[in-house]
Computed example of a mutant assay.
Amino acid sequence: MLNTETINEYPTLFLILVTLFGIIIGSFLNVIIYRLPQMMHQNWLEDFAETFPEYPISVPDKKMNLSLPGSFCPICKTKIKPIHNVPILSWLYLKGHCAYCGTKISIRYPLVEALSGAISYLTYSHFGPSAYTIFCLIFAYLLISAAFIDADTKLLPDSITLPLLWLGLLLSLTGVSPVSLQDSVTGAIIGYLCLWSLYWLFKIFTGKEGMGYGDFKLLAALGVWCGWQALPIIVLLSSVSGSTLGIIQLWMNRHHKEQTTTFAFGPYLALAGWFCLLWKDDIMQWYIFHILG
Rank of each mutant, 00 (worst) to 15 (best):
W200L: 06
Y199H: 15
T161H: 08
P163I: 00
G191P: 00
L165T: 11
S116C: 05
G187W: 08
K208T: 07
S177H: 11
P129D: 11
F139S: 04
L173K: 12
I88G: 07
L155M: 14
K95W: 03
P157G: 08
A188T: 03
Y93H: 08
I80E: 02
S116W: 01
H126S: 03
G207M: 10
L142E: 02
G191N: 09
I204W: 15
S180K: 09
T186V: 08
K77H: 14
K77P: 00
Y93M: 09
L94T: 01
L92N: 03
I105V: 15
L162F: 13
S130R: 15
P74I: 03
L111R: 09
L170I: 11
I83D: 00
A140Y: 12
S120M: 07
I105C: 12
L143Q: 07
A118D: 08
I149M: 01
I88F: 13
I204Q: 13
T103E: 15
L94I: 01
A118M: 15
D152K: 05
T133N: 08
V86A: 09
D152L: 06
P129A: 14
K81P: 03
E113A: 03
S145G: 00
K95D: 00
L155P: 00
F127A: 06
I160T: 01
L198S: 01
K208E: 12
K95F: 06
I75Q: 12
Y121A: 13
W91I: 05
S197H: 06
Y132P: 07
L115C: 10
S130P: 13
C194L: 14
S197R: 05
P87A: 07
L137M: 07
I107K: 12
F205P: 03
I80R: 06
P110V: 05
L142G: 06
G207A: 09
G128A: 11
A146F: 04
T103Q: 15
I160P: 00
T206E: 10
I204M: 14
T174G: 04
